[in-house]
Amino acid sequence: MIRLIVTDLDGSLLNDKKELPKEFWDLEKQLAQQNIVLGIASGRPHHNLLALFAPIKERTYFLSDNGSFVTYQGAELLVKMLDPEAVTTFVQKARGLNKVYPVLCGKDRAYMEDNDETLLQQALQYYQHYQIVPDLTKVPDPILKVSLCDLINAETNSYPHFRQFETAYKVAVAGERWLDFTARDANKGIGIKLVQEQLGIGRDQTMVFGDYMNDLEMMEAATYSYAMKNAHPGIIAAAAYITEFDNNENGVVRTIKKVCGLTV
């Protein structure tokens, strides 16, 4: 029996217009009635997830910033910060790359040092609470995640310059335009295992959905691991199943309905 469902957002639960499926709220109600817990695991910041899922925030686990920050009912269950030296290194290296803009992600807001219009169009889809600062290496707040907004292509343009850091930090291509850095022991899979411990369940009672490489560890944390039909080849290879429908066809909702026997 499925007891926990954890889904990624962009490219998974959300369509390409960043919209939730219309059936989602009724589906979530039925899941709650069956004591199936929902978790949202995303590279997005905590404040964004709380706003998007405000009506159900008291019964939903939030795994934000690629699992660096896990909360439930306002309680902080897991916080993994990057060391300041790493933040400085990533920022300084990114500054030398073409069309690559670093974004620092704290608990409550994001920080950028450039107000390039194209950057803001990308970033403000996810970071409603942000501050433009003159120098990101001087931001005093603890940082959960460094994200590089790569206006060319994260996997081919910026990622090759940072592969050398993969032994010490978690480096993940999080989307076509995003490359993310977190602490080595911070990822969505670790966050899911913490939630499983809280609920007293294991991977055989867990279903997950993901589409990009920051979802890789999620696939390993659940027996019912689903790569979206539109997923990166690396996620498709790691998942146990592939959804019949993509994110623009409500693939997550339709799969949950079918597997859990729901009627929405």
Rank of each mutant, 00 (worst) to 15 (best):
T60G: 10
S147E: 02
Q34A: 14
N230M: 07
Q196K: 11
D16H: 10
N214E: 11
V208D: 00
P142H: 04
A168T: 03
A41I: 02
A238S: 06
S68N: 13
L151V: 00
G43S: 10
M218A: 10
Y212E: 14
F62S: 11
M1R: 15
L148Y: 01
E155Q: 06
E249M: 09
K258P: 02
T263K: 09
T223D: 15
N98P: 01
P142W: 03
S12H: 05
H46Q: 08
L104C: 11
L78Y: 15
Y226A: 07
D114Y: 03
G202H: 11
Y241I: 07
E19I: 02
A110R: 02
L77K: 14
V253W: 01
D185M: 07
D150V: 03
P84V: 13
W25Q: 09
D135W: 01
C149P: 00
T89K: 14
E76C: 15
A75F: 12
T223M: 14
D26F: 08
K145V: 08
N15V: 06
M1T: 08
V146Q: 03
D185F: 04
R44K: 14
L78P: 01
K257S: 13
L179I: 02
E117C: 08
A186K: 03
D211H: 08
L124E: 14
T71Q: 10
K107D: 06
A54V: 12
V171N: 01
Y127P: 06
R59C: 14
N48R: 06
P102D: 06
S68Y: 12
E166F: 04
I132T: 15
K229L: 13
Q73P: 13
N247Y: 02
L262H: 04
R44V: 08
V208P: 05
H47C: 04
H129D: 14
E28G: 00
Q121P: 03
Q131E: 15
Y61H: 13
N157C: 00
G202E: 12
R184I: 09
Y212F: 15
T137D: 03
D8H: 13
N115G: 10
N98R: 10
T223R: 14
T156Q: 04
A54C: 06
P142I: 06
V171Q: 01
A237T: 06
S147R: 02
E155H: 04
L216I: 10
F162D: 03
Y212T: 13
W178R: 03
A110E: 08
